[in-house]
């Protein structure tokens, strides 16, 4: 067994290709632990935001209730939730050893993510025009830091998935590439879950 078999023939394609190799299994556990760390990272951000969300220097500064448009946030949520679903489809096809469909769904995921990102940028520009900026108040700082960190995660995820689509285009599906795709999908789900919390804690609680 000089060479480990990464290119498993389709009749022996495992039902969980992402953890079929030892490296894949490590990656699977390691990434979950990483996400645990990310969870505390965002928990700290949420705590900071909750502590500062009503802190503005004067009465003329806008607060959450004056700013947020739930409709927009809802549309953004839909974009991200749907992209999470499409990444599930991609992983499903990966497990069925269907490379082209997996690539397709990954592509759709990226497009939906881009849609979310453009809406978020549009939203930030709107707020900036209203005078709600990173530097205008402690509320502003906390708001942009929380959403900005999430947004940066989205950007990172988009670049990551796009790179995977391109790099795997020639290599095809193997237990080696499957682990990579699965990890990226996990990351994407995590970003999505964080957004659900943002939607609840920042937008819903802010408007109520």
């Amino acid at each position: 067994m000089a060479e480990m078999e990464y290119n498993v023939p389709s009749e022996r394609w495992p039902s969980h290709p992402e953890t079929a190799t030892h490296e894949g299994k490590n990656k699977f556990y390691g990434f979950w632990i990483f996400l645990a760390g990310e969870t505390t990272l965002f928990a700290s951000l949420f705590a900071t935001y909750l502590a500062l969300k009503d802190s503005v220097p004067g009465d003329d500064h806008l607060l959450a209730a004056d700013l947020f448009a739930l409709e927009l946030a809802f549309v953004m949520t839909m974009f991200l939730l749907t992209s999470s679903l499409t990444s599930v489809f991609a992983v499903h096809h990966m497990r069925n050893n269907n490379f082209s469909k997996m690539q397709l769904w990954l592509g759709i995921t990226v497009l939906l993510g881009l849609g979310f990102l453009s809406l978020e940028i549009y939203e930030f520009i709107e707020y900036t025009h209203l005078g709600h900026t990173f530097r205008s108040s402690a509320f502003g700082s906390a708001f942009y830091f929380l959403l900005g960190t999430h947004g940066a995660h989205v950007v990172f995820g988009l670049i990551w998935i796009t790179m995977l689509i391109i790099r795997n285009a020639k290599r095809g599906l193997s237990v080696y590439t499957a682990a990579k795709v699965h990890t990226a999908a996990l990351y994407w789900h995590f970003i999505d879950v964080v957004w659900v919390f943002i939607f609840t804690i920042v937008y819903l609680l802010g408007v109520v």
Binding site: T48, A51, S55, V56, F139, S141, F145
Partner: peptide, 11 residues
Amino acid sequence: SSFFLVETGGN
């Protein structure tokens, strides 16, 4: 930013 600047609402 003003996370810790009391004048602009920080803590």
